[in-house]
Simulated assay, not measured.
Amino acid sequence: MRRSVAALGSTLFFFVGPGTVAGLVPWLLTRWHMRDLPLWAPMRLLGAAMIAAALVVIMQAFVRFVVEGFGTPVPVAAPDRLVVGGIYRHVRNPMYVALLTAILGQALLLAQPVLLLWALVVWLFFSTFVRLYEEPVLARRFGESYATYRRNVPAWWPRLSPWRGR
């Protein structure tokens, strides 16, 4: 896939996929209403920092799909190459981890426990999707390269030092 097509597809999916999971649904659940709790200001700051960090990671992951993988995060327009650079050297599922981090950050920022429940639902969906669909597809498509990557890079909890293999 050409990079320009991959970039356009990734941009559109960014608004549809992550925009729905970490934007539209949390808004529908909370209408961005900030509950007023005493002494909650440090939690709000932590939540805002989590959201900002998550946005950076999501954007880096999307860019990595285009420049390294020549594809998009959408399964029907998957990358031609196994994406293992950048943030993917620390964790295999940075987009999912970042989306969960953004939702948890929103829960803290807004002091909305309903978003904790939403994060749990999202995590259950992501983990099931990864285990039953993504991992088998990647194993078939990229063989030993993916097996080596999978052995060295954790799925959900980022490693502190980047994996140096390829």
Rank of each mutant, 00 (worst) to 15 (best):
A111C: 07
L109S: 08
G86R: 05
R141E: 06
R31G: 14
A53M: 13
V5W: 12
L104Q: 01
R64Y: 09
I51F: 09
P79N: 07
W27L: 13
W32A: 14
L117C: 14
R141V: 02
I51V: 15
A22Q: 07
D80I: 10
L100W: 01
L100R: 04
V56W: 14
W40M: 03
F15V: 15
V57Q: 01
I103D: 01
F142C: 06
R44Y: 00
V74G: 04
V67Y: 01
A53L: 15
L138R: 03
I103N: 01
R35H: 15
R64K: 10
G105F: 08
A147S: 12
S161R: 13
W156V: 05
L115F: 08
V16F: 15
L117S: 11
R92Y: 04
W157T: 09
S161E: 10
V25H: 11
L108W: 05
R166V: 08
S10M: 06
F62A: 08
L8S: 09
E135G: 04
F125I: 14
L99C: 07
S161G: 06
T72S: 15
L8C: 11
L120T: 14
N93L: 08
S161A: 14
F14R: 11
A48S: 04
F65L: 11
P26N: 10
R2K: 12
R44D: 00
I87S: 06
L28E: 09
R89W: 10
E134P: 07
V130C: 09
T30H: 08
G17A: 11
R64T: 11
R131L: 06
L8P: 03
N152L: 00
R159G: 01
L99E: 15
N152T: 03
V63R: 09
Y96P: 00
A111W: 05
I58Y: 01
Y149C: 04
F15Y: 12
V91H: 08
I51E: 03
H90P: 05
L132W: 15
L120P: 05
A49V: 08
L100F: 07
A48V: 01
P136I: 13
G19Q: 04
W27D: 02
G143H: 03
L115R: 07
S4Y: 11
